[in-house]
Design a protein around this nucleic acid. Structure first.
Length: 877
RNA sequence: GAUCUGUUAGCUCAGUUGGUUUAGAGCGCUUGCUUGACAGGCAAGAGGUCACAAGUUCAAAUCUUGUACAGAUCACCA
């Protein structure tokens, strides 16, 4: 069979993914083995795969595949969330394209369209994850609006309401005039913008010609002003105490008030107060009993209360009011100004602070144990610097606005009665019952009850995710939740630490009494080479699907993993995927080499081969040891790099070169089997990182039965120790080989010219196997152990204080050799001096641990010996 | 503005409780190779006064303080 010189992942990857799913190998059911569980951070149902998902899901897949191979009953639960705002916006647009206006639909009609859209277009991302190799238990795929998950959300709402942790009230909220809903504090992003500062003067009532000047960035809100505030100690304004001012244009009389909140240095030191449209003004309004005048409609246009510019958009009005103010003689001046403005994270619309009646969840009590869980180390953060961020937020946590003025989502289970009271219940029947109990005199029937029109924040379902995917809210004792919860690890992005991670911890402790996960691994942000965040608008993000087509899913996984130490930003570079692809190709070709050999079952195993196999076994042990430690600490890039080097540098560049039979000669059967064993171990170790090519090679290295898979084959484990002496001896052998190759390179001696090697040592120190390795790798035809004073003309080197020489008749320039030796000598002498300086320091010898002093003494004797050899060598030339 | 985290080779990063020769890796770079597995390759190299300054110590990339720069989080003044 001829094998292509280049590995082609395209056929292989689809084949094995189908094989795994056909055999339902990702599926898990509770059993007697220990569980390892991960729940996917549910992507938006509207989402498509981007580089952040690639990183996040590759990491989860590595952990799950590894756990599976370590004997855990591993489950990775996939799913999506319903993303209220994003999905509703998508559906509204979709309908608009078909000429349907949302307003013309009833709630039920709209939701029917929304579900249709979801079934047809939602969850593409879950399909895309298959291409990556994600070993999710697809039978368990969940959606936050599935009936059982929805019920859990309602249960939780009612539970919190009954505990007094959910309340309804009028508060200043972040209003998104585009999505026409409130959003939580966490959904507002502040951006710096260039704007203007308008100075406007208000006439003092009853004092013609007397004015007080304020500065504002939002002149349109003047129409809703209900006071002007100054600092009580500001002498400039002391004279106005008790007076009133006239609001320009609307000619409303408003009080002049004094409060320490005002910064005297800023602007004019006089602040206009619009309690309906600014959170700080609102608080001052309450304190000073001011009138609240709401001048905006929900969509951000001015309403009747504004009296002027009614119906105009707030930003248009901001421009349009200027000439009016000027005309009225109230505009003083305009300055350029830079300030920060809040934008809706979802729609990128400027947030309008708005007073409205909303539902809130009290966070203080929920936050306390959740903070402790992280600070006490029950939950570990990787990297742990995020503990600070977490603590800071948790200690200053504010109540959570959980209602959204949308239709797509979990409807708030509150039912209003004709008397403006309400009850909270699972359904209308229960609500009616409750209402009748509460108000028997009203003689209520179902028609009297009206359910709240709003839905809940999407995160109000996401925070239950690790519980609700196992149905642990509705059925707290069911076998699945008992078995899989708490989950083993959460892999997520740090920007949702508050939205999601913190709240999941609260929910876990509140409804399960235990933490929802033990470890939280925060991935970095994927950026481009110029450190810019990858985004659609910048167009700097590669298409993950195209990347996988180009480099193979294994190649892309390799690239993502290699560049992602935990928590560090990841500067994505396609070159890393290329490196991954090249690695696959390297293994493929190693396989081609091995498969191409003729096997002679009667052949004898050569000494160099026996030595190399022993060494390779120890090297694998060494790497397994470091890898287990790395993975325990979530240092996946280091773990992968250590196997990468094991395969490429040790197995391919060294081991295979040693055991390779001469051209057209067979390899002995014992060696062949041992090589296949080693190869199998290597693909086994690599499988969690690059599952496709490893599965392919595993199936071709030996005959397998249908239904067998590398992903279910136990992972080789570190035995607990390595033969360090053997490893050191082989490392020394490789150094000698390198030195000889260096001589070849310097003297321009081709690899086909065999060389001789003289070792200035007693032959009893030699190991025949290792000598044979040197002969093979460096193409040395003979190794002679000679007396220390033997004369050889050639190139020499010292390794571990043993002198070696390669006799080279006529090829060596004595002067050049001398110069080199002289340089070595100088270096060694300088080094010796530094060691001696240390050792002659009495306090060092007295204070340093004996071990450290011994090391220095050893350095001294080694250096002295080296100097002796170098001098001897120089004398001979 | 407050807090936190960084600053080590051209780039991206390791470097455990201070002590294993004068600091490591991958990529990139330089030089030489039509080497019977692989140019998606092979071999050999070059490259760093560990941001800066002071201090603690027998000993500092590692600990302390300060400075500079970068990033993150939170808070915002109209």
């Amino acid at each position: 069979m001829e094998l292509a010189t280049k590995y082609d992942p395209s056929v292989v990857e689809d084949k094995w993914y189908k094989y795994w799913t056909d055999h339902r190998m990702f599926h898990s059911e509770p059993d007697s083995r220990p569980a390892y569980s991960i729940v996917i951070p549910p992507p938006n149902v509207t989402g498509v795969l981007h580089m952040g998902h690639m990183l996040n899901n590759t990491i989860q897949d590595v952990l799950v595949r590894r756990a599976r191979k370590l004997g855990f009953n591993a489950v990775w639960v996939p799913g999506t969330d319903h993303a209220s705002i994003a999905t509703e916006a998508k559906v509204v647009n979709f309908l608009k394209e078909q000429g349907i206006d949302k307003k013309s639909l009833t709630r039920e009609q709209f939701l029917e369209y929304a579900w249709q859209w979801k079934e047809k277009h939602g969850g593409i991302i879950l399909q895309q994850l298959r291409k990556l190799g994600a070993s999710c238990d697809w039978d368990r795929t969940k959606f936050t609006m599935d009936p059982e998950l929805s019920e859990a959300v309602i249960d939780v709402f009612i539970d919190l309401y009954n505990k007094g942790l959910i309340y309804r009230g009028v508060r200043m909220v972040n209003w998104d005039p585009k999505a026409l809903t409130a959003v939580s504090d966490e959904e507002v992003v502040y951006k710096e913008v260039h704007s203007k500062l308008y100075y406007v003067r208000y006439q003092i009532e009853g004092e013609p010609g007397e004015y007080i000047t304020i500065a504002t960035t939002r002149p349109e809100t003047i129409l809703g002003d209900s006071a002007i505030c100054m600092h009580p100690d500001d002498e400039r304004y002391a004279k106005y105490k008790g007076k009133r001012a006239i609001v320009p244009l609307v000619n409303r009389s408003i009080p002049l008030i004094y409060d320490e909140y005002v910064e005297r240095e800023f602007g004019t030191g006089a602040l206009k107060i619009t309690p309906a449209h600014d959170i700080n003004d609102y608080n001052l309004g309450i304190k000073h009993h001011l009138e609240t005048i709401n001048i905006f409609n929900d969509n951000g246009t001015l309403n009747e209360s504004a009296q002027f510019l009614v119906g105009m958009d707030r930003f248009e009005a901001r421009k349009a009011i200027i000439p009016l103010l000027e005309e009225a003689g109230n505009l003083v001046k305009i300055e350029d100004y830079t300030n920060k403005v809040g934008y809706s994270e979802r729609t990128n619309e400027v947030i309008e602070p708005k007073l409205s009646l909303q539902w809130f969840c009290k966070m203080g009590e929920l936050a306390k144990p959740a903070l402790a869980a992280v600070m006490d180390g029950d939950i570990k953060f990787y990297p742990d610097k995020f503990k600070n961020t977490y603590a800071h937020w948790m200690e200053n946590v504010k109540d959570w606005c959980i209602s959204r003025q949308l239709w797509w989502g979990h409807r708030i289970p509150a039912y209003y009665l004709p008397n403006h009271e309400f009850v909270v219940a699972h359904n209308i029947d229960e609500a009616l019952q409750l209402a009748q109990q509460k108000f028997p005199e009203l003689n209520l029937s179902k028609e009297d009850l009206k359910q709240d029109e709003d839905v809940m924040d999407t995160w109000f379902s996401s925070w239950l995710w690790p519980i609700s995917v196992f149905d642990g809210i509705r059925h707290p004792d069911n076998p699945e939740i008992q078995y899989y919860y708490p989950t083993s690890a959460l892999i997520t992005a740090p920007d949702i630490i508050f939205f999601w991670v913190a709240r999941m911890i609260m929910a876990g402790l509140e409804w399960r009494g235990t933490i929802p996960f033990k470890d939280v691994y925060f991935t970095g942000t994927v950026r481009d080479k110029l450190h810019r965040k990858m985004s659609k608008s910048l167009g700097n993000s590669p298409d993950p699907i195209m990347l996988m087509e180009q480099y193979g899913a294994d190649g892309v996984r390799f690239g993502m993993l290699l560049s992602s130490p935990a928590g560090n930003d990841l500067l994505f570079d396609e070159a890393l995927c290329e490196q991954g692809r090249n690695f696959s190709n390297k293994m493929w070709n190693a396989f081609r080499l091995v498969k191409g050999w003729q096997v002679d079952d009667n052949g004898q195993q050569p000494a160099h081969t026996a030595a190399a196999i022993e060494w390779m076994q120890q090297r694998i042990q060494e790497v397994l040891g470091s890898m287990e430690e790395d993975i325990k600490r979530y240092r996946l890039s280091e773990a992968l790099m250590s196997v990468y080097k094991l395969v490429w540098d040790d197995f391919c560049s060294c081991f295979l070169e040693v055991v390779k039979p001469p051209f057209h000669q067979p390899i002995d059967g014992k060696t062949y089997n041992q090589i296949i064993d080693l190869f199998e171990i290597l693909v086994n170790i690599l499988h969690p990182f690059i599952p496709f090519i490893t599965e392919e090679l595993w199936h071709t290295l030996r005959e397998r039965n249908d239904g067998e898979s590398l992903m279910l084959t136990p992972m080789p484990r570190y035995s607990g120790s390595v033969d360090q002496k053997l490893l050191d001896a082989f490392a020394n052998t490789r150094s000698v080989v390198e030195q000889i190759r260096h001589i070849r390179s310097e003297k321009n001696i081709g690899p086909k010219n065999a060389l001789k090697l003289h070792v200035y040592a007693d032959s009893t120190v030699s190991t025949p196997g290792l000598d044979a390795v040197i002969m093979k790798l460096a193409n040395v035809e003979s190794i002679d152990y000679v007396a220390a004073d033997a004369q050889v003309s050639g190139a020499s080197f010292i390794e571990k204080n043993v002198k070696y020489a390669v006799p080279l008749e006529g090829l060596v320039d004595n002067d050049e050799e001398k110069r080199k030796l002289q340089a070595d000598l100088e270096y060694a002498e300088k080094f010796l001096q530094s060691v001696l300086k240390k050792l002659s320091n009495e306090s060092f010898v007295k204070n340093a641990p004996q071990k450290v002093v011994d090391i220095e003494r050893k350095k001294q004797s080694d250096a002295e010996e080296k100097i002796r050899i170098l001098k001897e060598q120089l004398a001979k030339l």
